[in-house]
Design a protein around this nucleic acid. Structure first.
Lengths: 301, 301
DNA sequence: TTGAAAGCGCTAACAT
DNA sequence: ATGTTAGCGCTTTCAA
């Protein structure tokens, strides 16, 4: 009887070997989530969203941290490929070539937060242009005259789109969008700090800044504090994406907020749908952003 | 010749199937790092330390987030077991039973940050008693009279040890270590907030607090801000473990700092040594902590 | 209902 | 130096 087998299983504490099972079925129950900076709370919140959906669908989520390093990213992609993971959710560091392998190997892939050029796959984004426009317009509306922008690496779609939103806002307020108010940094704190320093040291410095991610915003504010520049009285700051404990920071930071958890959920839903039906055409989900006005952009009149 | 095979491999874009390889060799090149809260920057820094060593030793690191939930933790342990991962580094949510399976299955396991009761395995810790004593003594030395303690769940070793260090410091300053100044919370922000509220609402409220992790410290400070209690003039605060951007928070937070990155490195080294030599007796590495004095504990005289 | 066997893709041992 | 084969533990198909 089957009952006796069950009994024996318990007695011997039998655990099925998933490796053999995976080999036989040529599929696993593991999803890889490859993110570009584990130190950025944006990604950690997103991962929670992915996890909650994945658990419900019977998958386990393993996290891989590429640290914005294309080489580490490649290594993790290779691992996901070699282990024949059931699916991959990736926020790329910007090199499209390596990811193609996954797509070619017919492993379901969803791009999250950042677009993948050259391949047509499921994608979950926020409306970066709109968010950046919101932030810049807000600064202009509060009486700041020369709004600068600290953005990320050109190859990363969010950096490019947020810059575009900034430029669009300037133009619609009849300001010229000059290059000398734009700095390209690395989406990290130190990069934000250096970019801010460079802006302050320029010939005709700005009186406010829009930084295109949370860590660079922190770096920029640190620079302003170090130089004794008063925020928001002398200088306005708006960032893209919140930081935790934003309310404990003085001055508290105005930011473009993103639905990070829902971003993760949406990606997970797309991935499970693609696994269920590999033939369906890829779709793109775009979530909208909101402006959180706090102290750093509210110039006293 | 071998050269012709190499050539064919390239032409066909051959990728070895790691699943089959794992089955044959009954081992993988994947380490699982199971952490209890991905939202806590303490763990993210630790993971970086693990990763850097692992990469050097030819392993890839996948991260699993148990969110302090024993059930999720069990699921990930089961996955690590089923996938026959090469090793596991775990910061447990406190249930010893499930982890035994890993040990019984002879999968190399290293406990990090939190001790595992009942099993004798490689462990990496910080000197929690010493750090807590440092923090409490510092508050007493700065003229605070009634020092409270917000600690974590009893079953977690760090919570117990930090509480012990607090009690020891009180006794060596001839203060009674009374239970009504101690609160057990959950190592999260909301828990810290509620514990602080409970302390303030008690009959004989404290004039300072030592919180045993970073998130609860943030929660406690939020509560103090909401109640209009002046830190540090009316109330002193010291936390255990730093938060990012501690310098941007006003008042800036005094904390017991931990070598988080080195903690990860040490665990990774222990794990790779155990993989190389499964027979060696388990060892425990204890790293020391330091006191970062900032504004929140410096009462103006 | 229960049993037997093939084969997933790889590696290691053995034979040529 | 090159070729052949057994077997890792599972699932699926086919046979009894």
């Amino acid at each position: 009887m089957a009952a006796r087998v069950q009994q024996a299983m318990r007695e011997l504490d039998y655990r099925p070997n998933a490796v053999a099972r995976n080999l036989r079925l040529s599929q696993t129950s593991l999803w890889a989530v490859i993110i570009s900076d584990i130190g950025n709370p944006f990604f950690t919140s997103m991962v929670r969203g992915v996890e909650d959906v994945a658990q419900g669908a019977g998958y386990s989520v393993v996290l891989c941290n590429s640290d914005e390093d294309p080489e580490k990213e490649s290594r993790y992609i290779a691992a996901a490929l070699a282990e024949r993971m059931a699916g991959v959710i990736i926020s790329t560091s910007g090199r499209p070539t390596v990811i193609n392998r996954l797509v070619e190997a017919r492993i379901p892939v969803v791009a999250i937060d950042r677009q993948l050029r050259g391949v047509n796959i499921d994608t979950v984004l926020v409306d970066n242009v709109q968010g950046a426009e919101l932030a810049t317009t807000h600064l202009l509306g509060n009486g700041y005259q020369r709004v600068a922008c600290i953005t990320g690496p050109r190859r990363i779609s969010t950096a490019a789109q947020r810059l575009r939103g900034y430029q669009r806002a300037l133009r619609s307020h009849a300001r010229e969008a000059t290059d000398n108010l734009v700095r390209y940094a690395d989406f990290r704190e130190e990069g934000g700090y250096r970019a801010m320093a460079s802006l302050l040291d320029s010939d005709n410095p700005p009186d406010s800044v829009f930084a295109t991610n949370n860590l660079m915003t922190v770096g920029a504010v640190e620079c302003l504090v170090d130089r004794g520049v008063k925020v928001p009285a002398e200088f306005g700051v708006v960032g893209f994406d919140d930081i935790p404990w934003a309310h404990l920071v003085r001055p508290s930071l105005s930011t473009v907020s993103q639905p990070t958890y829902d971003l993760g959920r949406a990606a997970a839903v797309l991935l499970s749908e693609r696994i269920a039906n590999p033939a369906r055409p890829p779709s793109t989900v775009t979530l909208s952003t909101g402006l959180q006005v706090r102290e750093s952009s509210s110039r006293p009149s």
